[in-house]
């Protein structure tokens, strides 16, 4: 039923990828096997996959939540970068404060800055009618420029010689690993936020109102719903999730804000949200899948000498197939 298009798309993607890899003179079946092995084949692979899934499920919410309000936002990468940068500033300013308080404020800073950035797209759409898909991607490029300007300028730690970075957040404030695993606590944060987003969107009056505004803005206006404010809120919450992803990457992976933050998780989130049909719980499974594809990249590179872009090709094929098989869905098209 609703899973059929997904299964068909996965199958077709595997076939297409195998054909493509074979056409380039690489062993096709080995490549497919390595994707499976690199993603889910060992404890190490699982840990790698789960660490990647954590930020991806959050950036996917940056697509999924505005989609509920009828908006197609694809600029999560910018919200992630600026949210991460804002979060990295908190421990620098509040050095010596209690750990939990600082981490909480880091999350808040990332959330507010990321949310504000995406809310700008929602505002342009509602106030000026500017297409939010284009504006959000433009804002992602602007965000990257602002990020580089600040990190290589006034926020640069003079000690970071080869790679411009902000001052380190300090070992005290680093988010550590979940006991018994080599996966940081960010995964738990991500899962909790996804569940929270699902509850908010499916079980509260607010979520229902956002759905009405997204499904039929005119009808929503007629029954007196504040359509503009609902759009803005959906964008703010989505952008906030992406900003939180940036905060987690800073606090758990990099230890400061530098250009490595922009590793493409924002773009991976778009694919994940579409694969999950913008469902906040489905996003978790999708993040596992796309995180797994990303995790298999180094194995493909090491064993078969495939270019690192192989995982991008695989993601692109999956995205195209998913949309093509949307035509099998009898429950009607996704509006966005």
């Amino acid at each position: 039923m609703s899973l059929l298009p997904l299964v068909a798309a996965l199958f077709v993607t595997a076939v297409l990828f195998a054909l493509f890899v074979a056409s380039q003179g690489y062993p096709a079946f080995d490549a497919l096997a390595l994707v499976g092995k690199g993603a889910f084949g060992s404890t190490f692979a699982w840990q790698n996959t789960l660490s990647r899934a954590a930020p991806i499920m959050l950036t996917a919410l940056c697509v999924a939540l505005p989609a509920r309000a009828g908006l197609l936002i694809i600029g999560g990468e910018g919200a992630l970068a600026l949210g991460g940068l804002a979060a990295a500033m908190v421990p620098v300013a509040l050095a010596g404060w209690p750990v939990l308080l600082v981490q909480g404020l880091m999350a808040l800073a990332g959330f507010v800055v990321g949310g504000g950035w995406i809310a700008l797209s929602g505002w342009l759409r509602y106030k000026r009618g500017v297409n939010e898909t284009i504006s959000s991607l433009l804002l992602a490029y602007i965000g990257a420029a602002v990020f580089n300007f600040l990190v290589e300028g006034i926020l640069r730690d003079p000690a970071s010689l080869n790679k411009p970075s902000t001052a380190p957040i300090g070992d005290r404030y680093v988010i550590g690993a979940i006991p018994g695993m080599d996966v940081h606590w960010g995964l738990v944060w991500g899962v909790l936020v996804c569940i929270g987003a699902w509850w908010l969107m499916r079980h509260t009056v607010f979520g229902f109102a956002v759905g009405v505004a997204g499904g039929n803005p005119r009808a929503a206006q007629m029954v007196g719903l504040p359509v503009g404010r609902l759009m803005l809120m959906a964008c703010f919450l989505g952008g906030g999730a992406a900003g939180l992803a940036g905060m987690l990457e800073v606090a758990a992976v990099h230890g400061d804000a530098n250009a490595d933050l922009m590793a493409g998780y924002g773009y991976a989130g778009i694919l994940v949200s579409f694969a999950a049909r913008h469902h906040p719980l489905g996003v978790m499974a999708g993040a596992l899948l796309v995180g797994g594809i990303g995790a298999s990249g180094s194995l493909l590179q090491r064993h078969l000498d495939l270019p690192d872009a192989a995982t991008l090709v695989l993601q692109g094929m999956l995205f195209v197939s998913l949309l093509a098989f949307e035509t099998l869905n009898r429950k009607g098209a996704q509006r966005v």
């Binding site: 197609l72 694809i74 898909t133 773009y267 778009i270 694919l271 579409f274 872009a309 991008l312 090709v313 695989l314 993601q315 692109g316 094929m317 995205f319 195209v320 998913l322 949309l323 093509a324 949307e326 035509t327 869905n329 009607g332 098209a333 996704q334 966005v336």
Partner: peptide, 17 residues
């Protein structure tokens, strides 16, 4: 039931990859 904007985003990622 296939949306041109969504396909465009997918083709953007596919083409660059």
């Amino acid at each position: 039931r296939v949306n041109d904007i969504a396909v465009g985003i997918a083709m953007m990622l596919f083409g660059t990859g």
